[in-house]
Design a protein around this nucleic acid. Sequence first.
DNA 1: CGCGGGGTTGAACATTCTCAAGAACTGTGG
DNA 2: CCACAGTTCTTGAGAATGTTCAACCCCGCG
Lengths: 238, 238
Amino acid sequence: MANSRKKEPEITPQPPLSERMCVSLVPIFNHLSPEQMDEVMEVVQHKTFKKGETIYRADETSDTLYIVNRGQVKIYRLSDTGKEQLVRILTPGDFTGELALFRQSVHEAYAETLVDSAICHIHRDDLQRLLLRYPTISLKILEEFSRRLDTAEKQTTSFATEKVDTRIALYLVECVEEEGANEATIELPLSRKDLASYLGTTPETISRKLTEFEEKGLILQQGQRKMKLLDIDELLFI
Amino acid sequence: MANSRKKEPEITPQPPLSERMCVSLVPIFNHLSPEQMDEVMEVVQHKTFKKGETIYRADETSDTLYIVNRGQVKIYRLSDTGKEQLVRILTPGDFTGELALFRQSVHEAYAETLVDSAICHIHRDDLQRLLLRYPTISLKILEEFSRRLDTAEKQTTSFATEKVDTRIALYLVECVEEEGANEATIELPLSRKDLASYLGTTPETISRKLTEFEEKGLILQQGQRKMKLLDIDELLFI
DNA sequence: CGCGGGGTTGAACATTCTCAAGAACTGTGG
DNA sequence: CCACAGTTCTTGAGAATGTTCAACCCCGCG
């Protein structure tokens, strides 16, 4: 028969976006008119990365804003004594590189692809020109920055004042999509090792605490990364 | 006699700045021309606070940027379980309120004066108008934000990966003004209690660790808040 | 069916906190 | 200038919390 393609091989885990689509989805650009977007697209370049490649590393000078088009990127830092901490995972539509972009300075973190990825990027000079021409973009970036700053400070406070119990519980609850309900099924996006790095603990402790939660009837583990939260209110009280 | 004022009472601990001086010193405005500064000053208001007064508190809606003119302000958060963490101390020239200023949102932290203080403030609408008229101000704020974001993430990493030893040592070194030397005398700006809150530990632990440092010959305590760092390189190695 | 990598469990150990008591400092009023 | 009261800081001992390291388990895959 004519269309006998059987089971097209899944190459990309996420549906591919056109670059324009990708860039226009980024919160900092999504309010622009089509004409303005044209202008933005003129200075956007793109590149693909294999799994595990480094996009930038600490101490490199920064002159580029990166936008994840397809794939996943992890941002991590090394502490003064050399231990790694996962700062954030970027998924399509997220951007990075901004920290060192607005002042002459070097990166303080590492960006590395977790899977094959496509990344759009904009050069510093081009971006600054856009910002001066369309001040509303700056306002959007300021908005995004202030959100991140809140998150970062909240995270710091959480590390400073909560014990591991609580941090893990809070993280589980953050993973919930639906609002309102007291139950939910979630799928952890990270391995125990990465999760431990993100939460400032060890894989062993995470295992133990999850078991503990299960014994208390707060969660129901279903395989390594899936679980059902049975009592969200109670989880927040730990 | 005519001018017989003896010993004018010292009301202000820091030398008072004119408001204009104050605002013009803030990094985000200090590049403006005198004419532009005039425009800024038109929308700046001012207010004085007694020691211990609250400037804003979490969950209040935010519509004002505050600039410290004279005095000291502490910014702190309450964790989900109600414990207080000191986020930052503002001194003259520092600003706050920005977090919730660029998106419609409420404060997530508390701002409280540590001593009698004078605060300049700018209303949200006025600020936005200024930003749209002078896009370079946005760039300055972005610069400042990116610096703070770095600091916040660094702080988070430090909490996540270092033990109290190291965090205290790093803090001591941060207090040093002069660059280069391996020795320095510093004066802690915070009480043990506040320092503990800032570093995510307890006053008792700080006492003990400082004693420990002293026994190892790394520091020499001179009164409660003053000390001499004897071997900065070694402190960073802990 | 054996291999390998994540994940789990256990036991000893290290770190830090808590609570309580005592010491040192600060500021005030005599 | 000294004594006192109120803080703030230090020290001690025991308890709680997490980490480390090693062994084991589970499961997908060749």
